[in-house]
Design a binder for these strands. Structure first.
Lengths: 228, 228, 228, 228
DNA sequence: TATGAATGAGTCTTCATTCAT
DNA sequence: AATGAATGAAGACTCATTCAT
């Protein structure tokens, strides 16, 4: 994708591999507790060679965060902009979010746990982008309330509940989860939230099918799409 | 609670202070990234003196986890054992859980973030106790389903949703939060969950008052109760 | 001299020893090329223990510079302020300067060679203090010119010549020099400079004796005085 | 000067450029503190390519020293061999030396500062050649003393004073110096030295003109002559 | 001629912990 | 009860150099 000249053909691929494996290690032991030597061992490179691919340990962290944030934001933007019932779009956002969580559990671990080790501008940018995503969620919820689909909720608190429910999933989801898929889990979460938030008398019973109809055919690529 | 004798009068108090302040530091910078020297500076003790009070850095971590787990388990046990509507007890558990989160945000940070740095038996014991708490939650939810108050939910998934919603709160709650109290926030969470989980036609409108009546007069001490 | 509390009795002595030995090593191999491990080996301390005594490698460099600059400045100030013939004071300054060079040849090496590795404020302070010393020299030379003892020289260039002649001495002087003492070498340098700078007809033949009369009885302590 | 064949036409020119730029970098940051990568960046070549032109970092240092020593020695030899008043030849040597200092300040920095990083034979050869130059100076001074032009000086000490005065100049001379030229600065230095060293009653007042008459028309090329 | 990749020893510095005092 | 001194492993990162391409 236009790297600075002076790098061989395999470079970018190897680089992506390294970031991948760093995410695995960081998610398992924590960013602060994972050494560059350990990472080197893990990827099969001596300490010094690692620095051919990554400028610093923090740069690695930044890349991992970006691999989460970029699909998150692009999907959210796409969905929010759709011309459809806000409640429907909330469900789509839920599923999209869970798809990302399922597809790169290790990245999400790092995203949720270790963003505080970012420093300076990296941290500022992270927080700003994270807030951007939350704003997308809040916008949809506000629309649903305004449309009378939901009770008169505090939009901020509704947002936080939406995020709590989804974002905490990484804590118990296993790699290679069999019981649930993004789609089935999202369906459960949405049932809870829509009934929980719904105005008295509102009926969301046909929503699952309508989500299926509108599903983005490229969305299943999740993080991989942005990383490549 | 029965320390080995041979220590002066102020010893145990000082010790508790140190654990307290360790929780603050760990929650701010992360367990792995907080040094014993920094902790020493923070508590006003030279590095060496710290080891008179705490056996090791990990021992500190264990104590912090215990300060969360013990009130959590004792409250959960008490509430589960009450002779009351399961739905009511769910709400009580919710409020109790939030009370602990509010009262010791820093401990909760460490509890949620850094348990992975426990090793060996410490880790095993932690996981086992954590599961114990989850079982209490799951037991109540199962009862509510069996009693026909809730829809035919997968009890495990219902539990996970309950936990997601509550446990993720520490991520955005501020120290000295003004907008919500444990009680008001719990009320919001419960409205969402009960409507979300509730069987068609079930009515939980009088629940808030009934919770207030049954509230444990000692519960407000939260973690402090166990720490002393 | 009032170190932060919390250090044993031997601390300051050991610390001074370490700085001493660092100066030896730096002067032999250069600051940049001398590692902290090598220094540790030299002083008989493991790498880690070194940092009990010195905050950083640069701090070591700063201390060495100070051990040169402080006696340099205090002696210069003392001599410049004396109520005596400027020419006489120039000779006294010459001898004082050479005394410092003789007594701590290794420090001077570092002072002359490695000041450029100072960074930020350390560098700024160094340059400013160095200029201060040069100003003392220039003041005396200017006085001598104004008094008609010297030819109509450019004072700046006279200063530079004075400094060239003295400061470059460290390049060829050996530790344990036998051939010259500060006093005999200064006498030679001054003969060259006074005849070289002197106005036609000026006579400085009795100067050596007059220097001997005015010599500061504490000056022979050189750097050691400031370091203690 | 007869490089091994098998190199393209631009090779030697590029090679000389690289040595040039290395001298600039070394003089600015010090030999030990300048990396081959930094040098590569500076000359617009990747790290690996540098080694096509220079065998090693130390080889670079050797070449820089040679670029100082060779003109130094050849000029000194030429001047010493002239059939002229020793005092006159001393002045010519002074000017020649300053010409080299002025024309390649950066090379001189490296020459004066970093010769200690030479190892083995490189160091031995350097010291031997440096001594050779000093011997030329000492020979002239001895002649002047023997001829009764100078006082009864210790020839070694006279030499050291000559060298101190000239060699330390690089420490304060700026690139693009405006105030002085080699010729004017040499004139000042020589006035100081000749008056300083001169026998009572000796008169050197017409020396400057006589130097001008005898000046070597090729000398202004300085180091460049040897480098090409 | 040029370079990207790799290496392994090296850089300065911080770590948790022990122990004599 | 407290601490200063010491340790040795580990922290992130840079070094000069080699070599296949």
């Amino acid at each position: 994708v236009g790297r600075p000249t002076g790098h061989g053909v395999g470079y970018e691929a190897r680089r992506q591999e390294i970031i991948d494996q760093a995410a695995q290690l960081f998610s398992k032991h924590g960013y602060a507790a994972t050494g560059m030597v350990a990472l080197g061992d893990y990827v099969g490179l001596r300490k010094g060679a690692l620095y051919h691919y990554v400028g610093s340990k923090e740069a690695l962290l930044v890349e991992i965060q970006d691999r989460v944030l970029q699909p998150l934001l692009s999907q959210a933007q796409r969905i929010v902009s759709l011309d459809a019932d806000p409640v429907l779009r909330i469900c789509m956002l839920s599923e999209s979010l869970l798809e990302i969580i399922f597809s790169r559990l290790d990245h999400i671990w790092v995203y949720e746990h270790d963003y505080r080790h970012l420093t300076g501008d990296n941290l500022r940018r992270f927080i700003q982008q994270r807030r951007l995503f939350e704003d997308f969620v809040q916008r949809l919820l506000t629309e649903a309330i305004a449309a009378g689909k939901f009770r008169q909720l505090d939009p901020r608190l509704a947002t936080l509940q939406f995020l709590n429910l989804h974002n905490h999933t990484y804590q118990w989801l296993h790699v290679g989860e069999q019981r649930w898929t993004p789609s089935t889990l999202s369906s459960e979460y949405c049932q809870t939230l829509l009934r929980g938030f719904g105005a008295d008398g509102a009926d969301f019973s046909d929503l699952t099918e309508r989500v299926n109809e509108l599903r983005d055919p490229t969305a299943h690529q999740g993080i991989a799409a942005a990383a490549g």
